[in-house]
Write a protein that binds this DNA or RNA. Structure first.
Ligand SMILES: [Mn+2]
Ligand SMILES: [Mn+2]
Ligand SMILES: [Mn+2]
Ligand SMILES: [Mn+2]
Lengths: 223, 223
DNA sequence: AAATATTTTTAGACAAATCTAAAAATTTAA
DNA sequence: TTAAATTTTTAGATTTGTCTAAAAATATTT
């Protein structure tokens, strides 16, 4: 029932990979964790033995229900700690990942439930990602990638797909943050860049690469 | 420069043992960490190699300046986290030790300095123990064990030498907490128990064993 | 379909941290 | 000052998590 930090890092990574792909490959985990494929195979045998995943050699693998539940518990801790670091200790959002990567492995249900209450049971972390509750339930996020957002509709930036400080400084230069109102005004086929209006006034150009990392939800009230 | 959690636990334990004894023995560390003497010897070789302690086989050992500095850093983290757990997350003082034992190993200077500021740079932890600052300096605590406190002098409970919940419940039953005013009114030679007055009104009897775990400082103002 | 490339697994090794059992050194007692 | 008891160290294993190199399986080209 208690897992090592190494096991937890694998579980979390596999969970995130299978959200997109369904089935996960040895190499994709190795790449994500910056380790060797051989190490991944070793760990897969262990996690299979502990009945956290479905795995047949050479056939790929995925977490079963027990594995998914475990993963959501780790993700819950990671995102609550990130929220604590940003909201309470005034870290910037690009400074929290490494520390949360350690804090997520602290074993204490009492700790994480008290932290959750202290933070006011937040629904989203500083990057706009949903925080699972103690039962593993997450608010569903009807977010759309900015590249797929219709023209002239006002939405709200609700999450960013990267946590690099390079991206943070670019966003802050363009006066974009989580919660900013945004509408796509024009699409330029040549370089796939778009022109957007921020908070109903500022017009800025956004590269295709940046747009791929921004997620928007439609405003549920008139702009 | 970064140490493993196992190394840090040894360093902290040796520091605390050498505060009393000066020189530390293999067995005393083994007992404190509930491990085998052989494991202690193994670790001593490693810590000597890393130049944290003075050690000659069969002769005992002690931390050098680098080792002491490292120990104080770990103790700082441990006590700041305990303060956070009690003051902010409303843990009871007998519930924090195990979690702080994990949290003390999180590696991030930024984290611990921000936490320190957020807590208001506290000088003492919930058990009354002094918290080293980021340079390793600790407030000197002129505390006296209750068994050595003179008769009829009013003092203040400032620290407890144990964190067991058995002790906590006993203290709360006697209406004693950190900050309580206390004076020793009578000494009973038969069982070495003492009668004390709490907050200038309540008379209670304290066993020799309990008194050994209570530390008192003289009030610097008139009672 | 065969050849080639890629992915995955196995084999064997290593460092960290632990253990038990036995040997060596030191301390205490007779 | 020997003998006995205690403490400490060594020797040899074990578990966890990692690695590299080589073999096996699968996928992609030609
Ligand atoms: Mn992690
Ligand atoms: Mn996040
Ligand atoms: Mn610890
Ligand atoms: Mn304490």
């Amino acid at each position: 029932m208690p897992f090592t930090a190494a096991e937890e890092n694998y579980i979390k990574t596999i969970f995130q990979l299978q959200l997109n792909e369904g089935m996960v490959s040895t190499n994709s985990v190795a790449t994500a964790l910056e380790t060797s494929a051989a190490s991944v195979t070793d760990m897969l045998k262990k996690l299979k033995l502990k009945k956290l995943l479905v795995y047949e050699k050479y056939k790929g693998f995925k977490l079963n229900n027990e594995g998914k539940k475990t993963a959501l518990g780790i993700i819950r801790k990671h995102r609550l700690w990130e929220t604590f670091l940003v909201n309470i200790l005034h870290f910037k959002w690009d400074e929290v990942h490494e520390v949360a990567e350690q804090l997520e492995h602290i074993q204490s249900n009492q700790l994480i439930d008290h932290l959750d209450d202290f933070l006011g049971n937040p629904q989203f972390d500083p990057h706009g990602d949903p925080i699972p509750d103690s039962a593993g339930k997450m608010p569903i996020l009807s977010q759309i990638n900015l590249t797929k957002f219709p023209l002239h509709v006002v939405g709200e930036i609700c999450s960013v797909g990267s946590q690099s400080s390079d991206m943070l400084s670019l966003l802050s230069h363009k006066h974009i943050e989580i919660g900013s109102k945004i509408s796509v005004e024009q699409y330029f086929a040549f370089d796939e860049s778009i022109e957007v209006k921020i908070n109903n006034k500022l017009l800025v150009n956004i590269s295709a690469k940046l747009a791929q990392h921004l997620y928007v939800k439609k405003m549920n009230y008139a702009s």
